[in-house]
Design a protein around this nucleic acid. Structure first.
Ligand code: MN
Ligand code: MN
Ligand code: ZN
Ligand code: ZN
Lengths: 162, 162
DNA sequence: TTGATGATGAATGTCATTTTCAATAAGGAG
DNA sequence: CTCCTTATTGAAAATGACATTCATCATCAA
């Protein structure tokens, strides 16, 4: 199906370079904790929460990384284009996923079982740009989430999560 | 431009009827607090927060309505189709707006000044349905938010909110 | 009219995220 | 390399939106 083919070592290095660039141009300093979080995030396959990331940033090398540090690092990872924030469902909090060297996509979520499907429509992307232009805007991003019921849930009569 | 032409008295009554229907089929009872909140929400022009709604539900008639009651009422108003939930910006919490007897639309937000433009694209709506079908889903809803910089902010060099 | 049960106000709890602050580390100047 | 300024971090406390609890009040069917 869809394999988010993880980044190879060279890719990880390019990602770290992008992060360092952002860090530098903000007058910040290099730090191992930050790169530990970045690596854990980049190696994470699929969607993850802050809590997931805190956990993985720990057991990577016995080095602990506190939640507050992860929270402080996330905005930088977003700005450096390593990650993207997604809201998979009206409840369940904020999720993240790798965006670095990965094609853009949006999400279709089943309100019955929570299954998440990734999709991409160049047609939609194009219309989005047209809409923005028609209002004098220059697009910098968007979030688009479709909700519905999957085949299995419809057969099971599951219209929303228990 | 775009006037969300408020509901007339008859419209308000139809909305209350829709709410009462939902309330009844859930085995709940009629209550004045609930309708006070519903009316305040329906009469609210534009986008509003829970806090805004609590405030308006109060000074409507000297009758106070506590925040917890408003929070308890909101899900019913959503289910009855009187309101719709929107996430206007990556930060700023949850907003609501009237959906009853109002055409569907999505939002384009300026990341510089926070201006919000409403748009509607039948083409996008159609592609959304096609995407859902292609994955065996039946759509029940979606949220779509475009982010960008408006003309004024670009001229001013404002790329993101202070 | 009344009993069963839903609704409300007020207080309290919850949970994600932010802020604070003292201790530590980075890195440029000398 | 050493010093000094300033960013960074862990740890704890603070926030803030929203949920839950519980005693009291209101609704409505019998
Ligand atoms: Mn994804
Ligand atoms: Mn709107
Ligand atoms: Zn499903
Ligand atoms: Zn603007």
């Amino acid at each position: 199906m869809k394999k988010p083919h993880s980044l190879d070592e060279a890719g990880l290095q390019r990602a770290l370079a992008a992060l360092r660039r952002v860090v530098r141009e903000k007058g910040l300093r290099a730090s191992s904790a930050r790169e530990r979080v970045a690596l854990a995030a980049l190696r994470y396959g699929g969607h993850f929460t802050v809590e997931d990331l805190v956990r993985r940033s720990k057991d990577e090398r016995l080095e602990e990384t506190h939640a507050s540090t992860v929270y402080r690092t996330l905005p930088l990872l977003l700005e450096a284009g390593l990650l993207e924030e997604i809201r998979v469902h009206r409840d369940e909090g904020t999720f993240y996923e790798r965006a670095f060297e990965r094609e853009h996509h949006d999400h279709l979520v089943c309100v019955g079982c929570g299954a998440v499907v990734e999709f991409h429509s160049e047609e939609i992307e194009e219309v989005q740009r047209e809409v923005a232009v028609s209002f004098g805007f220059v697009l910098t991003g968007h979030s688009h989430e479709l909700r519905g019921t999957c085949t299995a849930c419809r057969e099971r009569g599951r219209e929303s999560r228990a």
